[in-house]
């Protein structure tokens, strides 16, 4: 029995987490108003023709530097129902570990052929696929030598499903010291892509990343 909500934890060595994590326990939502907390996201997103392929800025331009990978998986809710027509917004750093984001002021090089953002939609069975460049790890806290491990950001929105997460890479040396990975504990494994071979397509390797959107929001709309 719980009479109060979760106590959010603060990421070790993460200054922003210290600044922004609520210190009070989350409050329980009275059952009678619970449904009002479940957003339903309209299908408004758009995607350009080549956005599934982040390895190129556009189809007529050269491929970016680094290792081209495919990422694919199935999007489901926790009851195992596929979530179709959901939008995945994807962003990752380039081969060297730099974002082409106006607020990333690091001196790591940009790649003139890498944008690093794209949007794809799940099909009727909840499946998605995109290509990107395997991102570089980067030094997040030079003062203490703490790195951000290789990761790809994914934001899922569709109907009653909303999730922002990151896919990590297997056997990376910096995984163990990542503040968010530490908070996930044993569950971190679920956020690591599973390698597969890609002999027939123009990428070096693949990573399977099945996404389960948790929470009870979706049940209001089934």
């Amino acid at each position: 029995m719980s009479n109060s909500g979760r106590q959010l934890e603060i990421g070790l060595t993460d200054n922003t987490s210290d600044q922004r994590t609520p210190r009070n326990r989350l409050r329980l939502i009275p059952e009678i108003v619970r449904e009002s907390f479940a957003p339903c996201i309209p299908q408004r997103g758009l995607s350009r023709q080549n956005e599934w392929d982040l390895t190129r800025i556009a189809a007529d331009l050269p491929r970016a530097e680094g290792v081209a990978i495919e990422v694919s998986g199935k999007l489901q809710n926790e009851r195992g129902t596929p979530i179709s027509n959901a939008m995945l917004e994807i962003w990752n750093a380039n081969h060297f570990g730099r974002y082409r984001h106006i607020e990333d002021h690091s001196d790591i090089p940009l790649d003139e052929h890498f944008l690093g953002t794209g949007r794809v939609f799940t099909d009727i069975e909840g499946n998605y696929t995109f290509w990107t460049i395997s991102p570089g790890a980067y030094l997040a806290r030079p003062d203490i030598g703490r790195w951000r491990p290789k990761h790809i950001h994914l934001s899922v929105s569709g109907g009653g499903s909303r999730l922002i997460t990151q896919m990590y890479f297997p056997d990376e040396p910096n995984n163990a010291s990542d503040p968010m990975a530490i908070l996930m504990g044993d569950d971190f494994e679920r956020n690591v892509g599973k390698p597969y071979e890609t002999p027939k397509i123009d990428v070096d390797s693949g990573l399977r990343f099945d996404i389960i959107v948790g929470g009870r929001n979706a049940v209001y709309f089934e």
Partner: peptide, 17 residues
Amino acid sequence: LKPTNEDTVGPYFPINF
């Protein structure tokens, strides 16, 4: 099913989205 962990959006959510 066990859900995928939520993770931080980080500082660089693409403004172009």
